[in-house]
């Protein structure tokens, strides 16, 4: 039997959603971004909202998210995605608007923007990728970097006396009246990816219902930044990141 005989519609067990472009991703093998992109694209396809969705990409590794998810995109200045999303949603209330931000973007330089957008209860979706490091600039310390974790700017490990404690920004966000759904998920195995997809779908549905801001943190790996193999990175994340950033819903109303 030739390979051509196998490639037939009736034999197909998996297909890439058409909302995902065919562009090869620039992300490192093992990176969580690709998985999260796929989940978002699938939710957009399943909800049939490709024409109504506007994404806001951050500064960081995900700056090029627009190359992979086939919707209209705005690329924001570092940390400012929630401000762009605020105006976009208010000027286009019928649209689905989401930001896609990393920990440096959301929890460091963009702290004011995310706090106030969530506090105003903007009807937007926030996807927050927390891998405890600055990936794009070459592995520097992030606000969410764990104590003792070595990075390019904390070469002897994060010292709380020098750098403070890891910022659990999602816990702060959950305190804000404007948020309706705040959850922490991961994509390190099939089961967790499925749960994350459900969370993303719920977040988009909330936005249509006008319930307020939905915030989905995805605790992620950066195996390049962490200097680990993809498999080891997943293990390290479960062992070290999960105790600090426990899985589950912080708020759902």
């Amino acid at each position: 039997m030739d390979v051509k005989d196998i490639i037939k519609p009736e034999n197909r067990v998996y297909a890439k959603t058409p909302v995902l472009t065919s562009t090869t991703m620039h992300y490192c093998p093992g990176c969580s971004h690709g998985t999260v992109h796929k989940l978002i694209a699938e939710v957009i396809e399943e909800m049939g909202i490709q024409e109504q969705t506007i994404g806001i990409s951050p500064v960081g590794c995900a700056v090029f998210a627009y190359n992979y998810i086939d919707i209209d995109w705005q690329q924001a200045a570092h940390g400012r995605a929630p401000a762009l999303a605020t105006a976009t949603k208010r000027l286009h209330p019928e649209k689905y608007v989401f930001t896609y931000q990393g920990d440096g973007d959301l929890a460091s330089i963009g702290t004011a923007e995310i706090m106030h957008a969530c506090n105003r209860g903007e009807n937007i979706v926030v996807i927050f990728i927390n891998n405890a490091i600055y990936g794009m600039t070459g592995g520097q310390m992030a606000p969410t970097t764990l104590i003792g974790m070595k990075t390019a700017t904390s070469p002897y490990g994060r010292d709380p006396k020098l750098h403070g404690q890891p910022l659990k920004i999602t816990n702060l966000i959950a305190q804000l009246e404007g948020t309706c759904y705040v959850t922490r998920q991961s994509v390190h195995n099939a089961a967790s990816a499925r749960k994350t997809k459900r969370a993303i779908r719920k977040a988009f549905e909330n936005s249509a219902l006008g319930k307020g801001t939905s915030f989905v943190e995805v605790v992620s790996t950066c195996n390049s930044g962490w200097k680990l193999s993809p498999v080891k990175a997943n293990e390290w994340m479960v062992e070290n990141m999960f105790p600090e950033y426990p899985m589950g819903d912080l708020k759902d109303r």
Binding site: I56, A83, L84, T86, A87, T88, L91, E113
Partner: peptide, 19 residues
């Protein structure tokens, strides 16, 4: 809309102008 800062208001313009 009263924004939280001028940084935010100019970026709201970026979002609105993009539309």
């Amino acid at each position: 809309l009263q924004a939280e800062s001028e940084t935010s208001s100019i970026n709201m313009l970026y979002g609105g102008a993009s539309c």
